[in-house]
Amino acid sequence: MKSLLKHRLAWPVIALAALLLLNQIFRPDFLGLRMQDGHLYGSLIDIMRNGAPTILIALGMTLVIATRGIDLSVGAVVAIAGAASCAYIAASPDPGSPVTAATAVLIAVVAGLALGVWNGFLVSTIGVQPIIATLVLMTAGRGVAQLITGGQIISVSNDHYKSIGAGYLFTLPISILITAAVFALAAVLTRRTALGTLIEAVGINPVASRLAGLRARNIIWIVYIFSAVCAAIAGLMISSNVTAADANNAGLYIEMDAILAVVIGGTSLAGGRYTLVGTVVGAFIIQTLTTTVYTLGIPPEVTLVFKALVVITVCLLQAPKARNLLNRLKAAPKPAAKEAAKEKVAI
């Protein structure tokens, strides 16, 4: 038990369990799942589905943060990806066909790729500080999205496209399946290759990594591209869910939730060791919080304060200083046990 508590995921998991339990107390059917028309329904499914874009973006953010970076542009990438795909569908001669939907998806992903290359270029080749480099795209990106949509909200009607965010497959929402697939891909890609270790090495000690012959530039490029592609997929989900592209509001402040998810999950903003599982748990905590606010009937004005309190608590529990304090409170000074039987060489 004690060693379990020391595990780096212990506190996030406990927090998530406590939140779920709290909901269950106020709404006894909360944890229940039911099957209807071959689809699985329930609050847990809702949490996962609504959280899917945040989880995706947080996964990309985790790797960026592990290299000592940060990606503020993800919200803008969400907007650009949604705008590009919807604009394409709306302008295509056959707006309802599966080919159009597939091409739209491809366009969005390629757009994400290109934006990731841009961020990676600024950070790794030009050497701009990550926070500044991605701030450029964060502000300019929404402008680009507006140019694409012509300042309007573009609505589309394409059932294939709609299914990305709102469809079901094997009883589960497709967005959950996509997120799970990206998670699995990221986990395999980083742990089956040496990428994960090298990302951590660059984040822990960039100078030593360079002297060991690491090509930090390539690695930084990879993480920013991955982050932007994740954001583009999230952008597809969001726009497909509402079958419209809103350049102004799609993915607004999602970078904040993603960064929070990473931090709550136990990856330090200082870079270095990261945990993808922790990030997923962190994103669930954030999403569950939002749900809890509704369950408990907390007035919307208090919501943000409530969120902040939970976040602060989890972060505090992870801070080494707070932990030491806790440990010391627990371990009351025990008298120095002086057992005999020492063998020593005399002087």
Binding site: R192, T193, A194, L195, T197, L198, A201, S209, A212, G213, L214, R215, N218, I219, I222
Partner: peptide, 12 residues
């Protein structure tokens, strides 16, 4: 680390 770095990340 140095050996891995010269092989590249893809070839663990």
């Amino acid at each position: 680390l140095a050996m891995q770095a010269s092989k590249g990340w893809a070839r663990r």
